[in-house]
């Protein structure tokens, strides 16, 4: 078989394995521990329900079955694309996710559009600046960026732009005006993380001998940075692509709550509050899927971007 195809198949198989394991762990976590799911279905209050109602719910959701049977049934459904129905709204989980997803994708797209170039620029400037004072300042920025509480940054932006300046309505803005503040908020930790990783590997490459070689050959500082330090350092960004996109989903929980946007993050937050296990499980699986797909793509990109990871060329001499 073609080695590339074999590699892709192996990676795909591994991805499916990770998804299965994530499903199993999440299922165990959410269903095996003693929590009262019936109460969750009834909105947290058991006192008004009759025993008959309770039994009915137990039967309807399969709580009367042994755990292993529940697990196998739900796994079988999940494989066929059915993630069950929400305890609180009765809506199919896939539909709920489908509804929320575009909102989050819009947010993710904008914030990545800000974070990726922003992070790269800051890292480049931090290494490239001649002035040592400026260099120190810039290299300190990313670690401050990752240290700020996201929800707090969101509130500050809201306070400043909506209440102080009145530029953007606090709630209910549509289109660009509605997404810009949440996107800025989310892009801060993402950009800072990108800058941090890139800065670290740029600094590492910058001290390597080939930079001296080319400096001694007469290349300018900018050229050394862009064409010699950046390409090998940029490869390190690939390895965190999965984590960055994961953080988009994680950050969305906070940002969508702060800015009241009905995306995946908000869905996660409300379902956790209501102990709506099928929805929680669905969101967890969505994030695992994103992670698996991103890493699959990254694995395929590596050999294209980094010749060192390619199989060694046959000696032609």
């Amino acid at each position: 078989m073609n080695p590339v195809v074999a590699m892709i198949l192996r990676r795909l198989g591994f991805g499916v394995l990770v998804l299965w394991a994530a499903y199993t762990l999440a299922f165990l976590l959410l269903y095996a521990l003693p929590g009262d799911s019936v109460a969750a279905v009834l909105g947290g209050d058991l006192s008004t329900a009759t025993q008959q109602e309770i039994d009915e719910i137990r039967h309807q959701y399969g709580f009367d079955q042994p755990l292993i049977v529940q697990y196998l049934t739900s796994l079988g459904d999940a494989v066929r694309g059915n993630l069950g129905t929400s305890y609180t709204t009765g809506q199919p989980v896939t539909a709920a996710i489908g509804q929320a997803l575009p909102v989050t994708i819009e947010l993710a797209a904008w914030s990545l559009l800000i974070a990726v170039p922003g992070g790269i620029l800051v890292a480049l400037a931090a290494v490239g600046a001649r002035n040592p004072w400026l260099r120190n300042l810039l290299s300190g920025l990313p670690s401050v960026g990752v240290s700020l509480p996201t929800f707090w940054v969101g509130l500050l932006l809201l306070q400043f732009f909506s209440f102080r300046l009145g530029l953007i309505p606090a709630i209910g803005a549509r289109g660009f005006a509605g997404v810009i503040l949440p996107a800025l908020t989310l892009s801060l930790p993402l950009g800072a993380m990108i800058a941090q990783v890139l800065l670290r590997s740029l600094t590492h490459e910058w001290t390597r001998q080939f930079v001296t070689t080319y400096r001694a050959a007469g290349l300018s500082r900018v050229r050394l940075l862009l064409s010699h330090a950046l390409p090998p350092a940029g490869v390190s960004l690939l390895s965190i692509a999965g984590v960055v996109l994961g953080n988009v989903l994680g950050g969305a929980v906070i940002v969508e709550t702060v800015f009241t946007r009905n995306g995946i993050g908000r869905l996660a937050e409300t379902s956790v509050t209501g102990q709506d296990m099928p929805v929680v499980l669905g969101v967890v699986m969505l994030s695992a899927l994103v992670f698996v797909v991103v890493n699959l793509v990254v694995d395929l990109l590596y050999p294209i971007l980094d010749p060192r990871t390619r199989p060694v060329q046959e000696s032609r001499s």
Binding site: Q209, F210, T213, Y214, H228, P232, P307
Partner: peptide
């Protein structure tokens, strides 16, 4: 020392 040339070009 093995790093005198840019490894990715």
């Amino acid at each position: 020392t093995g790093t005198g040339l840019n490894p990715v070009r």
